[in-house]
Write a protein that binds this DNA or RNA. Sequence first.
DNA 1: CCCGGTACTTAGAAGCATGCCT
DNA 2: AGGCATGCTTCTAAGTACCGGG
Length: 757
Amino acid sequence: MTGDHGHHQVESGARLNDSHKHKDKHKDKEHRHKDHKKDKEREKSKYTNSEHRDSSEKKHKDREKERVKHGEDSAERHKEKKREEKIKSHSSNGKHKREKENGYVSHIKTEEDNGYGYSPKPEKPMKRDRDEDELEYKPKKIKVEKENKVKKRKQEEEFDYYDEDVKPKKKSKGKKDDSAGGGKKKAKKEPEEKWKWWEEERCTDGSKWRFLEHKGPVFAPPYERLPENVRFYYDGKVMKLSEQAEEVATFFAKMLDHEYTTKDIFRKNFFKDWRKEMTSEEKSKISDLNKCNFTEMSEYFKAQSEARKQMSKEEKQKNKEENERLVEEYGFCLMDNHKERIGNFRIEPPGLFRGRGDHPKMGMLKRRIRPEDIIINCSKDSKHPKPPPGTKWKEVRHDNKVTWLASWTENIQGSIKYIMLNPSSRIKGEKDWQKYETARRLKKCVEKIRAQYREDWKSKEMRIRQRAVALYFIDKLALRAGNEKEEGESADTVGCCSLRVEHINLHPEMDGQEFVVELDFLGKDSIRYYNKIPVEKRVFKNLQLFLENKQLEDDVFDRLNTSILNKHLQELMDGLTAKVFRTYNASITLQQQLDQLTNPEDNLPAKILSYNRANRAVAILCNHQRAPPKTFEKSMQNLQAKIDAKKKQISAAKKELKSAKADAKAMHDEKSKKSVETRKKAVQRLSEQLMKLEVQATDREENKQIALGTSKLNYLDPRISVAWCKKWGIPIEKIYNKTQREKFAWAIDMADNDYQF
DNA sequence: CCCGGTACTTAGAAGCATGCCT
DNA sequence: AGGCATGCTTCTAAGTACCGGG
């Protein structure tokens, strides 16, 4: 995005000439005008473009509308300015938190470009998983699990389920969680075997449950005032704050070490909201955040957390037990006869909003949620949760078409937050399973769909070409769909359908490759996506066409949005949406990479390295990044030191071996022969240890800024991993930790070693 | 269609516990 | 025994998708 000065200047010019309100309109008009010219030109060529013009007119009208709605021209101008700045500085000054220039991205993504990126292997006749067809998308039949039985049992258990049913609380977590060996003793550990919901019929009438009972959410503890000796200073003088103002001040004080608090927007938003909490006296006194001194508070909290760490074992144990009691009481619900773990039964405490990236609302006060804000969802015939004494719920409803137990509306974005079940629950697991089944159905028709969109690149209709090129990106690059977002409500991020001209650069030739598309934009969570992709000529030409006569801030796909795209996809395959491509491509990549990278001769650590590499290929495809751990360099050095030490040991051991051999040769006696053998073994053992360390170092280095967790948890069909483990005799614990094994229990139980995605 | 509203998945970072090393 | 690196858990923001009503 560097060096498009032409556009930039035009834009500035427009602003200068048109200093007030109508600036944008003006620009849009001009733009449309250009479009029109362009249309004429194009008519000469084989495209039909009237549609294009209409639609771009429409989109622009919408922008106008929005501007009118927002009223504030100044706000708009501010935004324009922001964009300009961004354009200027894009890629050149630390705008992006994390630049990722590791050759990885382009390497993996561009290798062997047959137009798809993933040379699909010739599929051998797929062995069908036994469940494959059981889980068709939206089956129409209504099946209900043994209903009467359910009802009966429910009545019986209604009031004592907390002590019975599945899941003991004991979970004495027998030291280091069974990590190594597969089979360990099961003393009285597993008396009630786990419920295998995946062996039961699914209810398909659209209801999510038949019975639901829970105790409601846990509220944030009330605010406790600071001790007298912890003071706040304004303009150098001690000032006693009212309880409300003090609470909000502590939120800020707790974040003082964070760079957030140095940001202008953060400070501005915070101060504005803080003032709302002040008494009128305070308000009149405290007018400048820069004169506020929170250091005593900050020190106090630091000391507190230090003290918490220093607590004695017994105290810690007490806290832990206290917490477990809370989990036991509020952390579970009863859903259709089964005790299920709740994911987040604690209400989010008040605090300062921390958005990600350049968030316009960072620093705003997230208000405290009270029972009066909470909507409870449960069965009519269940024991309803009680609100805390002296309070009321906002509402109690009985909607079994949804899965949540409680909800409230958050005050920053006005969005709804939910309390829902844990990933190990039936309701989440079924959905997850279904997601992978949909992706597997895509596998069966993906070639057809690819052929189709390639054909569509030639369409005479602009909207179809745009749709086809966008779909190509989504398929080949695993981009997200890119819903529209409301401007100014959140950080400026995009996905495929919302890509703007400023995010894309076309290079007819680059680094010896033809038709290179350079993508550079901030995606979800403001994570930068940067990639140079050689594409087919036709795609390239289409992109040139889409960009023609547009401004930097215009949409690349001005005739497309996610709903149009998904409607189209729905016609190609039942249940197909843009995000299915991500799941599909992630899972198929894992499977292919595992096939390719696993060397049967390898030992366990090497096989696991191969797994991690396969996982990494997926994470790179999906652009799952992380901030390099703060301790990364150091930990790398430590590891290197270990390796060096090991090498020394080995050379020493080798020397000993040599001299032992010499002895043996000279002496010819049994004892010296034995000594040679022991020494040989020692060398061997050390070499193995060295290899293990080296493998570890490689793995860690390659993982520096790649996050494997997200793909593992959300994109990779767990059955692929389970099958791989079974095939190579790898303990599943090496791949999935306890939480993950709980989430993927269904897959671990059902996948055989020959499972094919 | 568009738009606001809703439900649910996906995401990285912060916070925390554990276990290893010295 | 204490300090700290590590991996796991928790937290909650930020996406996708879809619906229903004008």
